[in-house]
Design a protein around this nucleic acid. Structure first.
Lengths: 218, 218
DNA sequence: CTTGGCATTCTTGTATACAAAAACGTTGAC
DNA sequence: GTCAACGTTTTTGTATACAAGAATGCCAAG
């Protein structure tokens, strides 16, 4: 026995849900997945529980585990909450941020810029995430930072799509500049508003994308 | 076999942690609890997972399940986040609240007032919770409402203590009045600020209480 | 007396076996 | 032909058995 297969399985299942192998409403068959992963049902059931807590899976008693992808409405709601959480982080961070953290923000932003010019979207995502994560941390509120990071992670697969809009990357970079300036100046309300808009626009773009896909299908 | 013992056990354990039977750092012994509840280890482990997700228990691989009560610092952080979440709910609710919901708020508030006069703290807690829950709902953002309710529930046992401050109940009632007025008028920023302060002061009071207890112990 | 290594014991993680509930298909009655 | 009731099958929930890692204590060596 190695150790903690259940965790590993939870991650793999998460990946399978994100990449679309399983989609909304699919029932996750315990026995089938068990032999597929080469384990017994026990660790799989543990993995289900873990996924249920992060919201990816719904556990219905006596019925099984069902994939639960958020619909457009729920997604918009989540983006709205994300925007507010980021705004709070920004407001607190503007007062509490350290010089060193500011330096790291500049670094992350510079690498973001480089990634945009190199058309390296993976690099862009990574550095963008670092940028936001620094702000969460610098809120000085660890609980808040964790909650923000949790939701950020959950929205990750949807944020990617929205960035395919023409010119969105450049616009996003400009917004980052404004955010940094607000943090440097320590103007908390401005930092909050700028961050809120920065995230809210992602929700908006996503909404537009959904609408476009829908009308294209008709 | 009845059905879903695991859920039941999770609830009971939650209660045991809240009422102080288990306190911070305690290890939850699988076998001991299993025979205590008259079940096998399997449903217990499921219950642990569920408690871990709500943050009451920390699961350390190969070590076991440990009770994880938030310390003073984390508690303050949680109250800060709660204050901000309520503020957001208030800001949105001020724009979206229905007349019927306003009526229900008035009703909950009146019953709160009656409970204060009757010195019925249980009733007060119940109606106070209803008051806040209505605001969560009226934010029009279901995801937000759920998150707010989740954190509200988690802070419940700590909120109770803080209300023992002299005159806190009356002050809280006055704050409720202000909140309602802001919601009636539809002034979202005012509603947000009033709610934020209303919750933040709870954190403050709690802080004072902790300090008082600490200095009394010296 | 202290410390390091080894063996024993205890506890967690996983597999398998069993029980009960829900899903499914078949058959029979109207 | 349709619908309902019953029996079969599948699938979930729980118990138990087993394997492996961590904790503990003992003994010996310095």
């Amino acid at each position: 026995m190695e150790q903690r297969r259940a965790d590993n399985i939870a991650e793999q299942l998460e990946e399978l849900i994100f990449n679309g192998t399983f989609s909304d409403g699919d029932r996750l068959d315990e026995v089938r997945l068990a032999e597929q992963f080469g384990v017994s049902r026990t660790p799989l059931r543990e993995a289900f529980q873990r996924l249920a807590l992060s919201g990816l899976v719904e556990l219905i008693p006596r019925r099984g585990a069902f994939v639960r992808q958020p619909g457009p409405v729920e997604l918009m709601e989540m983006f709205e909450v994300m925007a507010e959480l980021e705004a709070v982080c920004g407001r607190l961070a503007a007062l509490r941020i350290t010089d060193q953290a500011l330096e790291e923000l500049r670094d992350a932003n510079a690498k973001c810029q480089a990634a945009v010019e190199a058309r390296d979207s993976d690099e862009y995502y990574a550095e963008n995430e670092r940028f936001h994560r620094i702000i969460y941390q610098q809120s000085g509120n660890n609980f808040l930072a964790q909650e923000a990071a949790k939701l950020h992670k959950r929205l990750k697969p949807f944020r990617r799509q929205q960035l395919r809009f023409r010119g969105r990357m450049a616009q996003s970079m400009a917004e980052h500049e404004h955010i940094m300036r607000a943090l440097e100046m320590g103007t908390s309300d401005l930092a909050a508003d700028t961050l809120r808009d920065h995230v809210a626009v992602q929700g908006e773009k996503f909404h537009q994308l959904m609408a476009a896909l829908k009308s294209a299908a008709e």
